[in-house]
């Protein structure tokens, strides 16, 4: 599973992308993945402390946090977008 991070989520976690090979069996949805991320250490705990403000895309499509995740998904975590002007 490829995970990508943008904006302050990237800054707080300290990485822009990574590949996760083995996730615990109970990590089945985006929300589960967020809970798991919180346990990874200070930067991750801080970045994911308030899941409500985290936006998610699965395979480059916006997704809700109750969406199931698959081993070969590309999952992105980022703040609400601010394009245009």
């Amino acid at each position: 599973m490829k995970i990508v991070y943008f904006a302050w989520v990237r800054e707080k976690t300290g990485i822009s992308e990574e590949v996760l090979e083995k996730l615990p069996d109970n990590v089945k949805t985006v929300a589960d993945l967020i809970e798991w991320q919180k346990l990874r250490g200070s930067g991750f705990t801080d970045a994911f402390s308030d899941p409500k403000i985290i936006r998610v895309a699965i395979n480059q499509e916006y997704s809700s946090q109750d969406h199931p995740i698959e081993a070969n998904d590309e999952i992105a975590f980022f703040p609400p977008v601010t394009g245009g002007r």
Binding site: F6, A57, F78, P79, P80, V81, T82, G83, G84, R85
Partner: peptide, 24 residues
């Protein structure tokens, strides 16, 4: 209007007080 709320862009502003991400 849709670019602003849907396109995945994030803005980091630099001011004399430091850098900060623009909130939606």
């Amino acid at each position: 209007d849709f670019l602003k709320t849907r396109a995945p862009f994030w803005k980091l502003e630099e001011t004399q007080d430091g850098n900060s991400w623009v909130a939606a």
